[in-house]
Amino acid sequence: MIFPIEELINFTGNIYEITCAATRRAYQISMLRDEDNKDDESTDKAVSIAAKQIFTKEVQYRIEHNPQ
Rank of each mutant, 00 (worst) to 15 (best):
L32K: 15
N14Y: 05
T43L: 13
P67D: 02
F11P: 08
N14E: 13
D39S: 14
K57I: 00
M31Q: 15
E17S: 04
A46E: 06
I18V: 11
Q53T: 00
Q53K: 08
E17N: 04
F3T: 07
E6T: 03
A26G: 11
I2F: 05
A46L: 02
A50Y: 04
N10C: 04
C20G: 12
A46P: 05
N66R: 07
T19M: 13
K45V: 06
I49Q: 07
Q60N: 15
K52Q: 14
D34Y: 03
E41W: 05
V47N: 14
E35Q: 14
E6W: 01
D39C: 13
N10R: 12
D40K: 14
F11W: 10
I63Q: 10
K52W: 07
K38M: 13
K57P: 00
I2M: 11
A21S: 10
A22M: 11
E64V: 02
I54S: 01
I5H: 12
E64P: 00
S48T: 06
H65Y: 06
I18W: 04
N14C: 11
E64N: 04
E35P: 13
R24M: 10
R33P: 04
E6L: 05
E6F: 01
S30F: 03
N66A: 03
Q28H: 09
I54M: 08
V59S: 06
I18G: 02
K45M: 12
E35N: 14
E6G: 01
T19E: 11
K45E: 14
D44N: 09
K52E: 13
H65N: 07
E17A: 04
D34G: 04
V47F: 10
Q28G: 07
Y27L: 15
K45I: 08
E41R: 06
I49S: 03
F11M: 10
I49L: 05
I9G: 00
R62A: 09
E58H: 02
A50V: 07
Y27R: 15
E35T: 13
A21L: 12
I5W: 11
Q60C: 10
V47W: 08
E58K: 02
E58C: 01
D40T: 06
E6R: 06
I9P: 00
H65G: 02
K52R: 15
S48H: 11
D40P: 01
F55T: 03
N66P: 01
I9E: 02
A26V: 09
